[in-house]
Every structure is written in structure tokens, then in C-alpha cells.
Design a protein around this nucleic acid. Structure first.
Length: 506
RNA sequence: GCGCCUCUAGCUCAACGGCAGAGCAACGGACUCUUAAUCCGCAGGUUCUGGGUUCGAAUCCCAGGGGGCGCACCA
């Protein structure tokens, strides 16, 4: 059935009509004609599904409780038997069965029931009972339509599978696919647990700019935008790091931010242009404290979100039980390539390892960068259970302090799980002159055309000149942690509304 | 950006050069204990879009669009 467009000729979703939604609209109008408001302003609920199950969960079949309840939720199933109908009402806590006997329903309830479709938001009032089969139910007397679903729901058994519809219309995915809801429940429980842990460790949660004159704190290509009021170009942040350290200079000895970061880079199963990181800075510590905190955060998140320490991804089983091994990067590389590499080695010597192994490299990479990339290519893919890898070349760590005994190696660690980097932490560089030199080295790289070179940030250097105490910093990839805990392989499955191309109008 | 795969009814999927179909949802009907309810009946299509080949195209070819996966960049 085709229905003509509105005479105005404008397109809008409310003008979308087909036979199915027209049917639902008609039912809504029928109710209105009987004086029943299809969009009431409120409904006083006295129990959620979970509360009802808690209160009356143990009852035997065919019992009455004498308790009248008012419940609300989305109608997900109707099973009609002539003068008796069953329905499933789903709310945020779970679901409960409605038992609707014609003989018990008020006249209004009968009219409302006749107008119901799957997907409608409904309210029901009646006695809490158990059915003859023993299922806790509401023996309904009054029924209310709270809001009409004008569009039909996806298949009640198969749900919604098409990935682009799932991402673009996440609301439909969430209401149709319990698995999707499960993933996001894990996400938000895990984040809440990490936030609680940070607060219990006396970290203060702060907010730093997303719109920045210069995107720093990481090596990545930023997004750009423009502020009309000031007529200046701005970047979206790629990391909150520099601002958080300025807060430590300002006297916040323990700060953290759960920060949305934006990187104008590739999109795949492990990377989203918009992603969430937890960054934390703690005065007077070094990587020892950073690794402890990282380990605790992941363990707390797992305990709270999934209640266990093992997860399975495809064929791999990951055991998150702490403590996790801490290995030196150069030791591990030595075991794999059979000789000890060091950032002070001549470039040609490190390149020879690449040639032996058939690994590609860029001609502008120095020995430090070459060593770092070997870690990515040779070590990372072999790691399954959590492992801290410690000691990275200063050349690839422009914001990290060098170790006390080696000016070319940074006191830095990465946390690897399931062949992916989950966290990065270091002892923060707090010597202003050295920071400025590192920035200058980066400026040379930028001049060569490196879009990801860290820009000089003189405001940050000036802050360091007021004195940054010894500080332990960490950054934890929240989305990847959620992927791990929820046992899913695509980062888009853990982001409610992932970046997509706009829906085409044609 | 390159390669491979994919797009059919509201949803899940068939048909793979020869009349576009099924299940669920919807609609009409039967049914007072179902829970993927069952049974009878009925309806539902720009086969992503535009070209082409062919007597005939959902199917083959070309171009475009959306999405997925892999590679590259990155966390």
C-alpha cells in the first residue's frame, strides 16, 4: 500500500507510511476516538519486573498474592487464546507476564488490548499471581497504552542482524537483541567500577578541553574545526595528557579523566575515530604505581562487569588473574631475534634484523623507532594473557622520562592482552628543558611531513617550568577493555553510536 | 586508499538465466494456561540505484551507493 507524500512535499520520518505502520496508526486513532489518550503524560509504576520476581519468586503454580501492582514496559510478545491472552512486558530490569482474561478486564482495558501491537509501551494494573504453569504474572484489570510503536519490531526470534542497521539504529538493536544490551550493560558496569576504584584511591575526576588549539599528548592525526567567535582553528583532542599534567602542576596530586578522544585515522575492528580512554596521573610515583593501578582497574572492571577472570575470544582464552608478568622489552626482543638491540645501535644494524625477518620499515625510522616497531611486529602478536612490557626507546616516547641509568630508554610500560595494546604508562618527563628539546626533535619530523609528529606545546613547557613533581601516568583503552570483557571482536559493538557514513536519502 | 564478500517483503532467509517464495510480524477467523502458543484464511515486493547482455535478469556484465572482512595507517 502506497500513501502519497504530505502536500507540503517535505520529507520526514513521520510521513513514512506503509501498510504496517498505517495499521498501527489506525489503532491509535481508534483509541483517540474512544476518548483514550494514546500518549498519556505519566504512569505511576509500583513495581519493576525484577522487584516483582524478588517479592514473589518462590510461589507455586496457580497462586494469588492479593497484591495489586502497576507495571510498565514494552510489549514484546502476545499469545492469544480467545478470551484469555498472555503477553510479555519487558522493562529495564527484565520481564513479567501479563495474564489477561476478558472477564476480568475493564471496558477500557478491552479497548486498549484490541489496539495493542508488539513494541507498544504499555502500563498494566492487576493482582500478582502465578499461572497454572507456575509463571509469575499480573492478572490484569486495567490496561494503558503509554506510547505506540508505529513501526513494527524486528523478527522476535532472530532479532536484527544487519550490522549497519544495528549501528545506525542502535535503539532498535537494543530493544530487539538481548545480546546487544548485555554488551552495553557490561560496558557501563565496568566504567562505573573503574570510576569507583579511582575515587576510592583518592583520584579526583576532572574535565579538560576537547577543543584544543593544538592536539597533543599522543602521536596521531587530529580532526580540525573552527571557532567563529575567536576566528581560530582548533583540533579535537587526541589525548587529555598535557592538560592533566598541568593540573598536577597546579596541585591536584591525583587526577583522572574518562576522556573521549578523537583520531582522524583508520577505522577497523580495533580502531574507532572516536574512542574512550581513562587517563590518570599520580604525583610522587613512577611506573611501579602505574602498573599497579592499571592492574587493579582491569581486575575491578572484570569483577564488577562479568564476575570472573577468564574470557574467551574465538579460540583464545584469556586469564586476567593478577599479578601479571612484567618483562623488559629489550630482553624479550633478545630472546626472539637472538641478539640484544639498543636504541644506540647504528640504524643499519637494527635494519638488518628487519631484513632477516622480512619485516618492512620506513627509511626515516631511527634505531629507537625500529626497535619499537619490532615489538609490534614480533612480540605483540604472541601475547595472550596480560603482560606488562617495560622500557621503551625515548625516541618513540616524547613525553616520558628517561630511565635513571640510560638516557635513550624511557621508564615506560605497555599492557598487552590478546595481541593488543590495552594501556600505556610512564614516569612523566618533568624536566622543562628536556621536554622542549623533545618537542624540537618532533618539529623536525613534522617538517619532514610526519602528520603524527607531536607538536610543540609551549604552554605545556611553561607549566613544567613551575614544577611538575615526579608523576606516574597511565592511559587505558576503555573500548578495548570492554571488547575483552564482553568477548566481542569489533570495537563498534561496544560503542553505542559508532561513526558511520550518513544514511543516503536515495 | 587497495583487494575480497554482501545487499530480495517490516524482520530472518530461500530462489542463482525461465511465473519472486517461506517463517516470524501484520490483517480476518477459532481457541481460558500460553511462553518461538497452535490451527484455518488473507495480504504484503523499485530483488540497493543506473546502464548493458539476453527471447527472457533478483540471477550474468559495467558503473555508482551502503555495509562487512582483510591489507596499509593507528590505540
Amino acid at each position: 500500500m502506497t500513501i502519497e507524500a504530505d502536500p507540503s512535499g517535505e520529507e520526514s520520518t513521520t510521513q513514512y507510511l506503509d501498510a504496517l505502520s498505517a495499521e498501527r496508526r489506525k489503532k491509535r486513532e481508534d483509541l483517540s476516538a474512544q476518548g483514550i489518550d494514546p500518549y498519556p503524560s505519566r504512569f505511576d509504576r509500583t513495581a519493576t519486573a525484577a522487584e516483582l520476581h524478588t517479592r514473589h519468586g518462590g510461589l507455586e503454580a496457580d497462586q494469588r498474592t492479593g497484591e495489586t501492582v502497576r507495571m510498565a514496559g514494552r510489549l514484546t510478545s502476545i499469545r492469544g487464546h480467545g478470551k484469555l491472552s498472555f503477553a510479555t512486558l519487558h522493562d529495564v530490569t527484565g520481564s513479567v507476564q501479563l495474564l489477561m482474561q476478558q472477564a476480568n478486564l475493564s471496558d477500557q482495558a478491552k479497548a486498549v488490548l484490541a489496539a495493542f501491537d508488539l513494541g507498544d509501551w504499555v502500563g498494566a494494573e492487576g493482582e500478582a499471581v502465578t499461572s497454572r504453569r507456575g509463571e509469575l504474572s499480573v492478572d490484569v484489570k486495567e490496561l494503558y497504552l503509554l506510547s505506540k510503536a508505529l513501526r513494527p519490531l524486528p523478527d522476535k526470534w532472530h532479532g536484527l542482524t544487519e550490522t549497519d542497521t544495528r549501528y545506525r539504529q542502535r535503539e532498535v538493536d537494543l530493544l530487539a537483541n538481548p545480546e546487544s544490551r548485555r554488551v552495553f550493560d557490561i560496558r557501563f558496569r565496568a566504567i562505573a567500577a573503574m570510576r569507583r576504584h579511582m575515587v576510592s584511591e583518592d583520584f579526583i575526576e576532572v574535565e579538560t578541553p576537547i577543543l584544543q588549539p593544538q592536539a597533543g599528548g599522543a602521536l596521531a592525526r587530529p580532526f580540525f574545526t573552527h571557532a567563529h567567535a575567536l576566528d581560530i582553528d582548533l583540533s579535537l583532542r587526541i589525548a587529555p595528557e598535557l592538560y592533566l599534567k598541568r593540573l598536577v602542576v597546579g596541585g591536584y596530586e591525583r587526577v583522572f579523566e574518562i576522556a573521549r578522544n578523537f583520531r582522524n585515522e583508520g577505522v577497523d575492528t580495533r580502531h574507532s575515530p572516536e574512542f574512550t580512554a581513562l587517563e590518570a596521573y599520580r604525583a610522587f610515583g613512577d611506573t611501579t604505581e602505574g602498573m599497579e593501578l592499571t592492574e587493579q582497574l582491569v581486575v575491578r572492571a572484570a569483577e564488577s562487569a562479568i564476575g570472573r577472570m577468564t574470557v574467551t575470544l574465538g579460540e583464545r582464552t584469556v586469564d586476567l588473574t593478577a599479578p601479571w608478568p612484567r618483562r623488559q622489552l629489550l630482553d624479550m626482543l633478545e630472546e626472539v631475534v637472538g641478539r640484544r638491540l639498543h636504541p644506540t645501535d647504528p640504524v643499519e644494524e637494527v635494519r638488518s634484523v628487519y631484513r632477516e625477518r622480512g619485516v618492512e620499515f620506513q627509511p626515516e625510522w631511527g634505531s629507537g623507532k625500529l626497535i619499537f616497531e619490532l615489538y609490534d611486529a614480533l612480540l605483540l602478536p604472541t601475547i595472550v594473557n596480560p603482560m606488562f612490557i617495560c622500557g621503551f626507546p625515548v625516541e618513540v616516547s616524547p613525553l616520558a622520562r628517561h630511565t635513571t641509568d640510560d638516557p635513550t630508554m624511557a621508564d615506560r610500560f605497555e599492557l598487552c592482552i590478546d595481541a593488543k595494546e590495552f594501556a600505556n604508562g610512564y614516569s612523566e618527563l618533568n624536566i622543562p628543558e628536556e621536554q622542549e628539546e623533545r618537542f624540537q626533535a618532533m618539529a623536525v619530523a613534522a617538517a619532514r611531513g610526519d602528520l603524527e609528529a607531536h607538536p610543540s606545546d609551549l604552554a605545556f613547557v611553561r607549566a613544567l617550568e613551575y614544577g611538575l613533581p615526579p608523576t606516574s601516568g597511565i592511559g587505558l583503552g576503555v573500548d578495548r577493555l570492554i571488547m575483552l570483557l564482553a568477548e566481542v571482536e569489533a570495537i563498534r559493538d561496544v560503542i553505542l553510536f559508532p561513526m558511520m557514513r550518513p544514511e543516503s536519502s536515495s
